[in-house]
Design a protein around this nucleic acid. Structure first.
Lengths: 253, 253
DNA sequence: CGTGCGCTTGATTGAGCTCAACGCGCGTGG
DNA sequence: CCACGCGCGTTGAGCTCAATCAAGCGCACG
């Protein structure tokens, strides 16, 4: 088990900011409010959005939220925890498409074919809001600001994937890992956690698969970064010591 | 110039299927009808969709339809011709995100930040329908089937990018080129052109950039495929001789 | 007729992969 | 309690595939 459910005073700086007891079903109370779907919805419309959310779902570490091939019925908003999303072709070919954290939406790739084309797996004990898609569509038609926001979220996903394609298409191993760490850093920062100290929820194997590298290469890059005093910490616990060096590495060819 | 505007009887099998003179502004008459936005729209609603299409735009080979950083106002449906879409960071870092052909939608990545994050460049003399996005959004709210279809198109783009990530993350040079050719083949086929004989509208450099390979590697792979009698033809003119071999290469590890 | 662009091919190099060994922490069971 | 196995991560040695460097070809175009 890995530091989940520790609460705000837990050992790591990006633990869960609210205790389990205080979690509510309401969007208004959710700490991810302004990152998630309700971001632009007025108070009076928030009730309507909440009314279509069928339920909160708990997903234990390692459990599959949805599997490639499952009938697509819902999107999921991560309320708590972390997920990895895997695209697979056949039994042996797998590509991790992304790692999702609180406030992010899962399952958008399923809209196009009414079946999921990816699987989403919890990296730690997690919680999501299930958003029945048919109901969401009706609501979007009625709430223009929500519609606009939903489209922005899909577009942002497309944009994110473009950056991953750049990474996979033309960056060295060192650059990929640096970009990966900086990306996590920024996302934790926007969630109110430390930008320079966080815990990796995924294994080296996951990182390698995501970045198009072997586990050994990932490990070597981490070692190199440590030797340069750019980062420190035990395998999963990362401190960024020289952000600038990492940034320069990414952009400076 | 490269075989554009040759009409159905031109030398190559994926020339333009209708002569220039017969091109109309109407979606109903457009040969890409059922691949594009109007696919699911009823006849009576088609007028409304057409009424928001501000204009047809001609784009000469090499011209930029929109540039990264431009204010986002419209999507574009490719009516005729081919485009490449380039994501760039800084002056020297470029990644081709995709090649678009008739019936496909350009510009969706711009929705999220009200500015385009990519540039789209015509690979030959082309024509697009400009779709003012603000008007489209209003219309989507009124036409549920159009809304659903639009979401499917965005989702399909996400799904497409997942497959590119798989390609870039875990395929060999040979596999990448094979997958690239087969992808083009399928897309021409759905447009009513030959699946086994088509013209590449992009340079080796474009292909290499897209596939995360150097121009030399791309060239070598083509030579290898020719030596195996899997393909034949001059640089841009490609005939697939052994589709099965290419498919096996892609899936069989 | 030269010049430049797009493409190919060859020789060499090197970044990252493969294979292998090992260390560490942890849970399990004798 | 220790022994053991196991999952996860690190490190080293050698190899390989694709990048780099370099040359040359064909063709369009001024």
């Amino acid at each position: 088990m890995h530091g989940s459910h520790k609460g705000p005073l837990g050992g790591v700086s990006n633990g869960v900011p609210i205790s389990i007891a205080s979690i509510s079903t309401s969007c208004a109370d959710c700490s991810m409010h302004e990152l998630c779907l309700p971001a632009v919805v007025s108070d009076k419309d928030l009730d309507r959005l909440e009314s279509i959310l069928s339920k909160r779902v708990r997903v234990a570490r390692g459990d599959v939220l949805y599997r490639s091939g499952d009938v697509f019925t819902s999107l999921y908003a991560v309320r708590l925890g972390h997920f990895k999303t895997v695209y697979s072709e056949g039994p042996s070919i797998k590509q991790i498409i992304g790692f999702q954290m609180s406030g992010e939406i899962l399952g958008m790739e399923g809209i196009s074919h009414s079946r999921h084309k990816c699987s989403s797996i919890a990296l730690e004990d997690s919680e999501v809001c299930e958003i029945p898609y048919a109901r969401l569509e009706s609501l979007l038609a009625e709430l223009p600001s929500l519609q606009a926001h939903f489209h922005r979220m899909m577009s942002r996903e497309i944009d994110r994937e473009h950056r991953v394609m750049l990474l996979l298409g033309s960056m060295s191993a060192d650059q990929r890992v640096a970009a990966f760490l900086l990306n996590l850093s920024r996302r934790y920062e926007t969630r109110g956690f430390s930008a320079n100290h966080f815990v990796l929820r995924m294994t080296r194997e996951d990182i390698g698969n995501y970045l198009g590298l072997t586990i050994e290469s990932v490990s070597r890059v981490f070692s190199r970064f440590k030797k340069n005093d750019w980062i420190e910490g035990s395998p999963r616990d990362v401190k960024l010591l020289d952000r600038k060096a990492l940034e320069e590495l990414c952009t400076h060819y």
